[in-house]
Write a protein that binds this DNA or RNA. Structure first.
Lengths: 207, 207, 207, 207
DNA sequence: GATGAATGAGCCTTCATTCAT
DNA sequence: TATGAATGAAGGCTCATTCAT
């Protein structure tokens, strides 16, 4: 029987993660020292190391969090919408989320996780898993659209899904770099892609 | 009259950059030690530091290179093509480049530069400049297309350009993470976007 | 409420300074490596750097110590003595101190600080402050002597004070270089200067 | 038969020493890099190393120069003066020399040699030799004065000589540290010492 | 002799991690 | 559990010195 309730433990863990994310967003993983996290969390080195085995562990835990966040964004839009409307809704939700100042901190960390994924197997797993679920969801929607005759049957659902996600990722990059970002522009561009999808008579060639 | 020709200097500089890029692609900026670069280049610490002021300087020089490479990819497609064909050509060139094993090493480094741009002002400049030129080029093509009546006059050229670049960036990410990548899929998806562009009578709304 | 008492901190700091002074006296500032101090103190690099910000900081802290030591040597000789006797007492104390083996270690360091003062503003401040207090003290004594009619009113107190200190400094140099040093000789020479001071009827010129 | 005349060699050697002294005076031995000397002399590393075996050798050569300079200062004052006048003349020459801006550069280096003498046997030899000659000269003068009955026979010539030199050294220190320095003050103080010397009836005690 | 690019040992410093309290 | 002083293995960088030209 633990003397400290598990919820207390989780709370402490969360405090640390919160502090770490702040530091990581500000300075990056490698520029952030454990001392920084200690300062930000107002805890001690020893305390942090009873909750996380190592700095790497801490980073991975942060990765896990992000994973959850993005999955939620793309998660089940109400079933009552048409597939195309669902896709728009997803895009809109994502684009709106990019607007929020608050989400940016976490996305700055995400960008670093993207880079880290090249080397760290665990993070690689997190990142690719984090992408596969949304992609699968979009694939489902497109297929449904095709069954309903709303979406051109010739398009490759997987390719569409991957492309949409790619667009979102690229938008994140540009947003993080401080490029001008407008919800209207982003939504408009996305609608063009959907328009292409819907077109019964796709002009695959420009000739 | 220098005993050693300037071209020799440049060659040496290049050797170092080459070795550094190899290390950075393999281990990332922060996991790579100068010792690694020394080992890879078979030169000495002192030699490296007569060509680059610091590790940071080395990273920035690598950034400069990438900058040049990508700008070239997007650069002037022949004027004889129609704007839409030009856009396709650009996309195709980019997608083909992503196929090449050789380009990947450099792109692994690019992803790290993207993350680094959040903290390093010089790299930030490089990365955003590297993106602005392609965007400007695409904007020009779209505008020409609109003037020629080939592209829907209602679309926002800037938004399209930014979106296209975003797509490319996202593709790079997925490719680097080892997600299955097919030229046909990628090209197909891109054509959809172009189809949306070309459609004179697009219902921007799905209602 | 700190787990470790502040006095423990000060003790540790002192250990380090002690080790550093030993090394510095033996090898000089620049020949001494932090590794040497580590070896001498039987502590670790990290520990030293939690107490001192840099090697330079360590040197300056050593300077501060010396400063204190010398100021003490020249400090208030009992008020019950006549000014001339006070001057003799000061000189004697100084000369005796030069005899002690123990004081030599610290003086070897002092000589290096004298040289360092040419370049390091902080050390320059320490060294000149360390000299100004004794000079001021001697000036006071001379003035008192003049008021009492014991010391020739024509002499410039400041010049005398500076000269006395100069003599002491020169003696330190010669002592450190291993020149034969005898208390009797040194005291005798100093008395000559005092004799000159006291002489009511001195012909400043030898003609 | 050397192709390069020895005088050409000596000239080159001198150029280097000149540059080195400038650097050493400005930054100290240990802060001065060979690169600095190279820059100051507008020669090359290889060139310097054909004239001097090592940095240490360069420093010692500088030491040799200083040695010569100071010995000259104290050297044989005309025989026609009385001993006391000779002593005054020596002091005056020294004090005047301290005034010259030009001499200061070299004295800044001297101070560093004084410190270096603690560790470097060669420099120690130079410094102590540089002092012994003046001391011997002064001893001779004092003895002559005693024989002539001008100087109190009770004084210890060696002690006097050492003390005078000590005073000079101390004055150099204070001057280098930028303490206010006046020829009149310095000369006055020195005269006091001479006055003490001359006194037939030395009050060795102040009681 | 002169040049200066190259060498590489070694220095100062940092920082993830531990452990006695 | 929490604390934070202490550890010590590296890491980035410098600089005296060499040697092919």
């Amino acid at each position: 029987m633990p003397k400290v309730k598990p919820e207390r433990l989780a709370a402490r863990r969360n405090e640390i993660l919160e502090a770490a994310e702040t530091c990581f967003a500000r300075q990056g993983f490698h520029q952030t020292t454990i001392q920084n996290v200690i300062g930000e969390s107002r805890l001690s080195a020893g305390c942090i190391y009873t909750h996380f085995a190592s700095k790497e562990d801490l980073i991975q835990a942060i990765g896990e969090r992000r994973h959850a966040h993005d999955s939620a964004l793309f998660a089940a839009r109400g079933e009552e919408l048409s597939p195309l409307e669902s896709l728009r809704a997803i895009a809109r939700a994502f684009i709106m989320d990019l607007q929020k100042e608050q989400g940016l901190r976490s996305r700055r960390v995400a960008l670093q996780l993207w880079a880290e994924a090249l080397r760290d197997e665990v993070i690689h797993e997190q990142v690719t898993n984090g992408i596969r679920k949304p992609i699968a969801g979009i694939v489902e929607l497109v297929k449904r659209g095709q069954r309903l005759g709303i979406i051109d049957g010739a398009v490759n659902p997987r390719a569409i899904a991957r492309t949409m996600v790619a667009m979102f990722q690229g938008l994140v990059l540009q947003r993080l770099w401080g490029e001008p970002f407008s919800v209207a522009e982003a939504t408009g561009a996305f609608d063009l892609l959907l328009a292409g999808l819907a077109a019964k008579r796709t002009s695959g060639s420009t000739k």
